[in-house]
Design a protein around this nucleic acid. Structure first.
Lengths: 357, 357
DNA sequence: CTGAAAGCGCTTACAG
DNA sequence: CTGAAAGCGCTTACAG
């Protein structure tokens, strides 16, 4: 029951009135001062802010919402199943949550409801959510698409929105994928395979393009038999690895278009008795594989201590915190009516681990 | 842009006034009718409800919150890191989310903030959250403990709260653990080991007690060397498995106190060249292991098609949806001032998979 | 059982 | 730059 600055316990509710009175101004002025509106004498503003702090004042969200039409609550949209299955979704939620916290926005979880239409209607109608950050993994769900087309402001994060009227924060795919493959070439690998994502998706296609770019840059001819289609799921990585390692001329390196598939590839290598990185190097994309994952695949006898700065799986790491922050920033700007560019991109980073050294 | 029943687009805002007018009653009566308050003529109530539905009315949450002091928003509390690492946390969130949806409660994500105290103070002060469901995995975090001790109503889910003044929904541990071990005995296993959770935790201690119960019931003497301490993390399961399988009298079955450790045990078995369930049967607890996990450990050559009703890992499945629903129900009753029992328990189910057949 | 009225705690034109 | 006042859309005593 440790107390706040002013020592009050529950929703003991220091109101704007209280602050105004203590500061010797009207509640209108107090409101303006606290909200950073212009047209308040600096000295007055300082006083109000000080008083508010010392009283431990927090604006009542409901009242603010009702008066202003803004709730300072944003939603994060994800299909329910992705929360437990997809490490990408979890990472995204965390980063959006942190960003929302920093910007003093509440974060509501919108996992979608059984009855299509219901969720969206609810969101639209009860006005508690100002706008939504939509994970790109949610795209394609009927209710999510409906949400994006609805009047509620939305920002898609994790992929370039196809629709020209939708805001999005995307990660650069092609260049970083090329960098990952170049890293393999520079490590002496020559037969470099790739396991792609579903190629109708732009990110998947771009990562494949990056793969081709890198080989071209190093004057390595592309062997089309080394390009195996996957679907971003672990199982497809396993299958692709089986195909590649079971062939007569197995690759000496594999670039998987995401970490989940890379895990599958690593497991496949183990099943074929191949060592990593000795026989084959593996590189992923996303940076979502965990040290715990290594415990299961255990590609190297030296497994175990996975220092924070020396991960086991080489991968192109998505800048999740930047993605989340940019998405929330963009949404707030949209809400304020001063939108920035429609699509913003952030740069991922190649993090070299033990799987390619 | 598919529209709702009444065809309005955005927050076009059908208000209580609109409903009242259309129904020919006052807004007070309309409010009472819609909220199920008693003292409204049935016929009137029916009319109001009908009108509201046909107009697509949804109460403005902010207004309701301001007037009633209740927001119909509950928080779900989880330490941030658990979202991506711990499948238990994700499962819990999903179930709480579904329950909240069904009960028309908004769900706010409270992952905690860097600065201790800040999160709790925010929650308390801005009054947007009526109460919180706290995942037991969050217990021990300073800000979470602070939250539980604060005046905001809370329900702990997933373990029996130690404090006598805290409400909780717990899962039965001892009996089901005994059932799991009995299942192994009935399968002909005799040297049954267990990997425990941290024994200062009640759930861990209870699961160990269940293990002893089952052996006693079958007149099998407990070999203390077959009881290995773990910490609920995958790594500790791997280490425990290494100890057990590396000994001179390895067990023919292992009961791990959770699925994460069971995964580690399975991986350890593979490293020792043991087949599952041939050489050793493995049983877990929680039901959080996924088919994807099997792809990595691949304990059986028959891996692959993991039918929904035939999982690979035998495990005591927690009834997550029931846990979530009960937690939310309990919280709402607390908020309504008519709390039920302080601790409620739900029964998990032993689900037999291929790892013990 | 029903309605008129006050009020929840803010924000925001509107005057000054 | 500041204040008095209205109003956001509900709920809830208080009368009747």
């Amino acid at each position: 029951m440790s107390d706040g600055p002013a020592g009050e316990g529950a929703a003991s509710a220091v109101t704007l009135q209280d602050v105004a009175r203590a500061a010797g101004v009207s509640s209108a002025t107090a409101s303006r001062a606290l909200n950073g509106r212009e047209g308040v004498r600096p000295a007055v503003r300082a006083t109000v802010v000080d008083v508010a702090r010392s009283l431990g004042y927090r604006a009542n969200r409901a009242a603010r919402n009702l008066a202003s039409g803004r709730s300072s609550i944003i939603g994060v949209v994800l299909p329910s199943r992705h929360l437990s299955v997809d490490p990408y979704g979890a990472s995204l939620i965390q980063s959006v949550s942190r960003a929302a916290d920093q910007l003093d926005q509440g974060l509501m979880l919108v996992l979608g409801s059984a009855q299509p239409g219901v969720t969206v209607q609810h969101i639209l109608r009860d006005g508690i959510i100002d706008g939504v950050v939509v994970s790109s993994v949610a795209l394609g769900e009927p209710w999510v698409d409906e949400l994006i087309e609805s009047p509620i402001p939305s920002v898609v994060v994790g992929s370039r929105p196809e629709r020209p009227d939708v805001y999005g924060v995307d990660v650069e795919n092609r260049g970083p994928a090329a960098a990952a493959v170049s890293h393999l070439v520079e490590g002496g690998r020559r037969r470099i395979a790739t396991v792609t994502g579903p190629l109708h998706r732009r990110d998947a296609a771009d990562r494949l393009a990056g793969y081709r770019d890198a080989l071209a840059a190093h004057d390595i001819e592309v062997d089309e038999s080394l390009i195996v289609a996957g679907d971003f799921n672990r199982r497809s990585g396993l299958a692709a690895g089986g195909t590649l390692f079971g062939g007569d001329r197995p690759p000496d390196a594999v670039f998987a278009a995401n970490d989940e598939m890379a895990l599958g590839v690593v497991a496949a290598a183990a099943r074929h008795g191949l060592t990593i990185p000795g026989d084959v190097a593996v590189v992923g994309f996303d940076g979502t594989a965990t040290p715990e994952d290594e415990l299961l695949v255990r590609f190297s006898t030296a497994a175990g201590d996975d220092a924070e700065d020396d991960p086991w799986l080489t991968s192109v790491h998505q800048p999740f915190s930047q993605l989340g922050r940019t998405a929330v920033d963009t949404l707030l700007e949209l809400l304020a009516g001063k939108p920035r560019e429609r699509v913003q991109t952030v740069e991922p980073t190649l993090v070299v681990g033990r799987s390619s050294r």
